[in-house]
């Protein structure tokens, strides 16, 4: 294997780990659709940055953060809107803006289209470093706000009613979500990010006992999905993104089967 692929494997492992970890909270809060929504916001941000001759990455991050934070406006107690319905509305807006922006782009659209599928094989050291830094920030966030995030996962109503600084922590989390998804997008693409957020976390929730165990398991599953998926694609000469998605789904399938078997044994 060419030494360049070590960078690809490293970047894939870090991206898989960060989306797996993020997924524990996103799936736990029952809003897995946020991945697709924010990735389209990042695409819209990139396109409009290109149109306005600004930095495309900055455009992607700004649009992602604005979109994710706007979700905080949907309050479980005050709004009749379910978070997922809110996400669907935001998604449709972002999709519309993306296509609108595409119509405005003159010349090559490759930068924008690469965000849809990702380009793990063309990862640059700079991208790998950015993803690693953001993953470390996410890890620090989950350690520092561990006790608050647990209450938010369990019940935002309880968190709000009992004086946990719920709005503040939730907004911070959403902003971090926006940045992490935007930086990962370049590598794993908008279509794959949804699988890497949902499958490892959903698999961990099938078999784990305790929050800490779910966090470690989902992070590990996310990392392994990316690494194993890439290795399979390399040796069998198959599309890497598709292999990573299939592996992450297989993790979920195996965990669901294990849980069923364990229930029957009990």
């Amino acid at each position: 294997m060419d030494s360049f692929f070590y960078l690809v494997i490293f970047a894939g492992a870090v991206a898989g780990a960060s989306t797996g970890l993020l997924g524990v909270y996103i799936v736990g809060m029952r809003m897995p659709f946020i991945g697709t929504c924010i990735s389209h916001a990042a695409m819209a941000g990139t396109i409009f940055a290109v149109v306005a001759h600004l930095n495309p990455s900055a455009g992607a991050i700004a649009a992602s953060v604005i979109t994710s934070i706007s979700l905080a406006a949907i309050r479980p107690e005050k709004s009749r809107l379910d978070t997922n319905v809110g996400l669907a509305i935001l998604f449709s807006l972002m999709l519309g803006l993306t296509f609108l922006g595409m119509g405005l782009v003159r010349g090559s659209r490759s930068e924008v289209l690469s965000l849809l599928w990702g380009s793990i094989l063309f990862v640059q050291t700079k991208t790998a470093v950015t993803i690693t830094i953001m993953t470390l920030i996410l890890v620090v966030f989950t350690i520092v706000f561990n006790k608050e995030m647990k209450v938010l996962l369990f019940s935002r109503s309880i968190a709000a009613a009992t004086g946990v600084h719920e709005s503040f922590v939730y907004c911070l989390f959403l902003a971090l979500c926006g940045v992490i998804l935007a930086v990962n997008l370049k590598l794993i693409g908008g279509l794959m990010i949804f699988s890497l957020i949902t499958n490892p976390a959903a698999a961990a929730y099938q078999i784990c006992r305790g929050h800490k165990s779910a966090v470690f398991t989902a992070t590990l599953f996310g990392m392994l999905s990316a690494v194993i998926g890439f290795m399979v694609s390399y040796y069998l000469d198959l599309p890497s993104g598709a292999c990573i998605v299939v592996v992450s789904t297989m993790f979920f399938g195996a965990c669901a089967l294990y849980r069923t078997a364990r229930k029957r044994a009990d």
């Binding site: 006790k147 369990f154 309880i158 929050h211 779910a214």
Partner: peptide, 21 residues
């Protein structure tokens, strides 16, 4: 209004009370 499907242990749920204070 609470998510009872997550794999929190009973001790983790009770500990959430201390988070508030």
């Amino acid at each position: 209004e609470y998510n009872s499907e997550l794999p929190f242990t009973l001790r983790e749920v009770v500990a959430m009370g201390r988070t508030s204070v």
